[in-house]
Design a protein around this nucleic acid. Structure first.
Lengths: 175, 175
DNA sequence: GTCTATACGGTGATAGAC
DNA sequence: GTCTATCACCGTATAGAC
């Protein structure tokens, strides 16, 4: 994942991966069936958080503060150890869409489903408000990208993402 | 640029580019010396806005509102026709760093210089505040990414970015 | 300016010995 | 499980005719 994040998935060859592991290139094919299989194995157990939030959301009574609660619950579900996955995704934004494999679609689909569940809760639903909502949801990604290249600690990045999400939510509907 | 944005730079072959242009693959080498040359030609005249803002900034008298003014000036300098470049950059975040060519470095370097000029204006300068500042500067990018896959008009995306930048600036120092 | 033809290297992937 | 050897393929890039 480190190689995919720093060099990009397409630009990382199996030779480099094998080299980093100290084994031969052909030995990779004993553990994985293809290069894409290596990629998907890194995200096997991911994508469940969004689905859980969606089901949680369906059990909640609709109210004025539900949107804020749900988004902050989502943003708050990220801990420092999950930033590695975020960093990979921001470095390879197109790669999951190109897999057309089950695991690849699951992550993007679950996030789409989350957005679809939250958009109806918007008071106004203008174009800009929809963007602001999505920005709030993706504030973790934006914070990671903003801090790329610096040596800012992960906890500060998470703090900034939380505060940004709060502010963006407060801006919704104020056009 | 459309091909590089939708498929990714590395995943786009010269054959596809030639096909889209209706010419032969080899004919490309009459107009460009290499694939990287095609990429850099798309950004020949870019990167100057950030430099202009930095020089403008140096002539301004320091004051409490200078940070906000400068960031909003930066965010406001983006019009709808510049979003194509932003979309390319968000789809290919690693590609400019890998060129080690003059034009490639110039864009990222100018943005780094902008950040370096603005950070000293921060009141507190904690880790989270630095991230928030950088998020405000990159709010255009974040808005474009948030709206990816939707049919939201460019003007709404720009509106959301402006409002987001304002909110993020207001959050700085409030830890 | 555009074409055909080709060189050359690296890629993902396979076969089979150990 | 790991290796050597090899494969077909596709990538960028070049040579040279028209």
């Amino acid at each position: 994942m480190d190689l995919f994040t720093t060099k990009g998935y397409a630009a990382t060859s199996l030779r480099e991966i094998a080299e980093a592991l100290g084994i031969n290139k052909a030995s990779l094919y004993y553990h994985f069936r293809s290069k894409e299989d290596i990629l998907l194995s890194l995200f096997e157990d991911r994508g469940s958080e969004a689905e859980e939030l969606v089901t949680w959301l369906q059990d909640q009574p609709p109210g004025p503060g539900l949107l804020q609660t749900a988004v902050m619950r989502w943003v708050g579900s990220f801990s420092a150890d999950k930033l590695r996955g975020i960093r990979f995704l921001t470095a390879n934004p197109l790669v999951l869409r190109g897999t057309d494999s089950a695991a690849g679609d699951r992550i993007s689909a679950s996030l789409t489903q989350l957005v679809d569940s939250l958009e109806p809760l918007l008071p106004s639903r203008t174009g800009a408000d929809v963007v602001l909502l999505r920005m709030a949801i993706l504030s973790i990604n934006a914070a990671v990208e903003a801090a790329a290249g610096t040596d800012i600690p992960d906890q500060d990045i998470l703090d900034a993402a939380h505060r940004a999400a709060n502010r963006l939510l407060a801006e919704i509907g104020r056009s």
